[in-house]
């Protein structure tokens, strides 16, 4: 008991030796400031970081989670749309420098569930965009009508931990499609983890499955109507290329869906999963609702004229 009392006295003596607190934000310890900043929304953080360099460093050290972040740009203006805690924030600017300074802050602090990039015009000549070495932290990334070089620049700026990348290329990027072959080539060379997956949907490219196989003729292990399997430099691993084809998404379908996956070389053909509907829906959640003729009839109701013409 006496030792407890001694300890207690020691603790309380320590507490009385603490300085008397001031009541000003500037005298608050950094850890409390960070807790307060953690409770602020994006606009307040942006304002606070403009007050002084010390505050800017603190604000920039605090991550901020976004459900969705959309970065867009064309020849007229640049736009950012952010969604966090069911609130939307947007910023537009026709000043490239100002916009990218802002993007660099968001890139540094933002943790995105979904990140959408859509810069239609090439930014390769724009040093602040290309050379800035800050990385995006995102789980699901989508490139929508994005210039190919811009897309590659952003892909290089993605932190590890990305779960999916969706790429909707424009027709102008068609010539660059060969770049997609670099993905299996990278897996062949780098001994990638089993389960690593890349999915892509491409519009109106006839024979793209065969074109793809032509790139890897010397590595083909087996090939069929829906699947092809190629060797990697690691004897234990193969790459499975699957074409997303079933009763609804037929071989003549306008959009082609492909999935590339690193698999074990031991995997038997009987172990292949017929789950193309599942992975196609991940890329395009509405496609089956739209093209499945049965559900189309159900949804169209009494308007049979329209339904008939659609069927034709």
């Amino acid at each position: 008991m006496s030792s407890n009392i001694e300890n207690f006295t020691e603790i309380t003596e320590k507490s009385t030796a603490e300085p008397i607190y001031d009541t000003n934000w500037c005298h608050m310890p950094a850890e409390i400031k960070l807790k307060c900043i953690g409770k602020m929304e994006i606009n307040e953080r942006l304002s606070l970081r403009c007050t002084a360099n010390a505050e800017r460093s603190l604000v920039d050290s605090q991550k901020i989670e976004f459900y969705r972040g959309c970065f867009e740009g064309d020849d007229e203006e640049f736009r950012v749309f952010l969604n966090r805690n069911h609130r939307n924030y947007s910023k537009r600017s026709d000043d490239k420098n100002q916009f990218f300074e802002w993007i660099n802050y968001i890139k540094k602090v933002g943790v995105f569930e979904k990140l959408v990039i859509s810069f239609e015009d090439s930014l390769v000549d724009y040093e602040q965009f290309i050379t800035n070495d800050g990385l995006f932290t995102a789980k699901n990334v989508k490139f929508s009508y994005c210039d190919f070089d811009n897309m590659i620049a952003v892909l290089r700026k993605l932190k590890d931990g990305v779960e999916s990348i969706e790429i909707n290329l424009t027709f102008t990027a068609f010539d660059e499609l060969a770049e997609i072959y670099e993905i299996p080539q990278m897996w062949i060379n780098r001994n990638s983890k089993i389960g690593t997956t890349f999915q892509v949907s491409i519009n109106e490219i006839d024979g793209s499955f065969d074109e793809f196989l032509e790139q890897f003729t010397d590595r083909i292990v087996s090939t069929g109507e829906k699947r092809a399997r190629i060797r990697t430099n690691n004897l234990d691993r193969h790459i499975l290329l699957e074409r997303g084809v079933d009763d609804v998404i037929t071989i003549d379908f306008l959009i082609k869906f492909f999935r590339l996956m690193v698999i074990s070389a031991e995997m038997k053909e009987s172990e292949y999963e017929d789950d193309c509907k599942e992975w196609i829906c991940k890329m395009n959640p509405e496609i089956y609702d739209y093209y499945d003729s049965e559900s189309s009839f159900e949804e169209s109701g009494d308007d049979s004229e329209d339904s008939d013409s659609q069927e034709e």
Binding site: N24, W25, C26, E44, S47, L48, A52, E55
Partner: peptide, 15 residues
């Protein structure tokens, strides 16, 4: 500091 500008925050918090 909800909805405040940098200048207003500087004034409110004496930064």
């Amino acid at each position: 500091v909800k909805g405040k500008s940098p200048e207003e925050i500087r004034e409110i918090w004496m930064i």
